[in-house]
Nucleic acid binder design. Structure first.
Lengths: 132, 132
DNA sequence: ATAATTGCAAACACTTTGCACCTGT
DNA sequence: ACAGGTGCAAAGTGTTTGCAATTAT
């Protein structure tokens, strides 16, 4: 197995993800934020570390509203196996829908439409309470 | 209102969409196909005509598996108001789910989660019968 | 005639890669 | 020492824009 060194950059990036573990953030956001708070870092490093975290399954990937950029959030893939993501078209917040409705629709699609749904890959779009 | 001229390029693009109205296609696919069959056309023209069709609501926009590129399909927005799209992660085909399940989940989200779902903007990912 | 359309080249935004230098172990 | 990490600049994508030439009416 490949060795891995701990570096300042990695821990700073990881810390930023931890501090914002409730929402999806972009490479640009991380870059700007770190740069503005005095950390000298290259975007490439962020891209590369994110790739590593993704391949280790420690990060979730999503996309911004018009698919302009990729968004990421801490969290293992397995932890998202059985719930949908609701994304608000207004404020762009992501909500986690973890109720029986997920199983119901999954079973319905399987039984009546021969379609094996992958809830973890599915994002439902709409408007949240605050943005209606 | 803005005038509009009929051109060879437009009708050729439109014809390609009509011939492939059952699936989502990319600008690149249109470009390659037309070029290979002897039509001289610029990608820009395709992009621009697609923008026009989109703004007129005659085209649906979607995204390819890894969000690398945009995909389009003929169809008015209103015609897709009340159904979900199922996209197969295997063959990339799009299926139209137009059954009571749509209303059920929409109502459930509204009632129990205060979330106003927009089925037309939502794509459910999974595997179709043939690709499981 | 004249307004819309086309298409090249250049610009853009996000992401990846090549490579020389730096850092952690 | 040396494998792994960093970051600049350059290359790669998909998409958009400026503009002069072309085409539809």
């Amino acid at each position: 197995m490949r060795k891995s060194y701990n570096t300042k950059q990695k821990s700073i990036i990881e810390e930023y993800f931890t501090r914002n573990s409730q929402r999806y953030i972009s490479v640009d956001e991380i870059y700007k934020n770190l740069t503005e708070t005095g950390t000298k870092i290259g975007k490439v490093t962020i891209y590369r570390y994110i790739d590593k975290l993704l391949s280790e399954g420690k990060l979730h990937k999503s996309y911004s509203e018009n698919n302009e950029k990729s968004l990421y959030r801490l969290g293992s893939t397995s932890e998202c196996k059985n719930h949908f993501h609701l994304k608000c078209l207004g404020c762009e917040k992501i909500f986690h829908l973890n109720c029986s409705a997920v199983n119901q629709i999954t079973q319905h699609l399987e039984a009546d439409h021969s379609f094996s749904l992958e809830p973890s890959k599915t994002v439902l779009y709409g408007y949240c309470e605050d943005c209606k």
